[in-house]
């Protein structure tokens, strides 16, 4: 498959991202552009809801590549990231072979058992087999550091060797996006192989632009007020400061209630849309919404 024209500069990439509905700033566009042309993984770190995952999806969309996502969690093991043998089907095969008296040659039986059709490809293997692709390794900070060491290996040469079958190599290295919420520091050896970008909350103008683009039904006035109020909430040391996802939820909730603008009373009643912890809602209520979102 030939790729749609690859953007020739960060600016062109920004425009292409914009066309998918994702509005990057200059730094992010440069980061994504370099990841694409240098074949270097992009390591995106930042608060929850700043658009890390969405960027990978937008990149897949604009390059026309399939996206494979590996969601990391504690205890994630290589078999869940690379491949697994399809145990059920292998057993059925064994039974069938036995019934057909084909089990007489154990070596052949074993070889037939570890055939590609019994292999379940997991995201890393899928991304290499279905090249060129986008590989999203989401929330890598949640995996254990043994897993990091393993990732480092895969990302350094984009090959996976399967003892029973042989080596799989990507024809074109996938565009790799790793994300982290920084719940712990990811090892420097892994980061060194990547382009590192710290993704901050968008500034006011960009947030308004994102709200307008994603939620065209919301009035400009409301978008402005939601962006400003969300920015205020981010300064309050909350357990979970609202990200873009939350400001969008808030604007949607307000719009659904028929609001054309945000007033303190409405803000207080809809706080649940933007704050995800009861403690946060209580704190903000105790600070008197009139003072925060003043009329």
């Amino acid at each position: 498959m030939s790729e749609p024209t690859v953007p020739g500069s960060p600016g062109e990439l920004a425009a292409a991202l914009d066309a998918t509905g994702y509005l990057p700033d200059e730094g992010l566009a440069t980061a994504a552009y370099l990841a694409l042309v240098m074949h270097r993984p992009l390591f995106l770190e930042g608060e929850a809801g700043v658009g890390k995952t969405a960027l990978a999806q937008a990149l897949a969309q604009l390059t026309g590549r399939p996206i494979y996502r590996l969601q990391c969690y504690e205890g994630l093991e290589a078999s869940q990231a690379l491949y697994d043998w399809d145990f059920g089907r292998q057993l059925l095969h064994l039974r069938a072979a036995e019934a057909a008296h084909a089990a007489d040659d154990p070596a052949r039986l074993e070889a037939s058992l570890y055939d590609r059709r019994f292999l379940l490809a997991r995201p890393l293997l899928q991304a290499l087999e279905d090249s060129p692709s986008v590989l999203l390794i989401d929330e890598v900070d949640r995996a254990d550091d043994e897993f990091e060491a393993f990732l480092l290996e895969v990302l350094s040469d984009f090959t996976i060797s399967i003892p029973e079958l042989g080596t799989v190599r990507a024809r074109t290295p996938p565009l790799v996006v790793l994300t982290s919420n920084r719940t712990r520091e990811v090892h420097d050896a892994l980061k060194r192989r990547c382009l590192y970008h710290w993704l901050a909350h968008p500034d006011f103008d960009r947030e308004v632009a994102i709200l307008r683009r994603r939620l065209p039904e919301v009035t400009e006035q409301l978008a402005h007020q939601v962006a400003r109020a969300t920015a205020t909430l981010r300064t309050l040391d909350l357990l979970k400061p609202p990200g873009v996802a939350e400001s969008m939820d808030w604007a949607t909730a307000l719009h659904t209630l028929g609001a054309r603008e945000l007033d303190p009373d409405l803000a207080a009643r809809t706080l649940g849309a933007v704050l995800k912890y009861r403690e946060d809602t209580e704190r903000v209520r105790s600070l008197r919404p009139e003072a925060l979102f003043g009329g």
Partner: peptide, 11 residues
């Protein structure tokens, strides 16, 4: 950006 993306490793 070329420098920041390649030389920095954390916030």
């Amino acid at each position: 950006w070329a420098g920041r993306l390649t030389l920095c490793a954390g916030p």
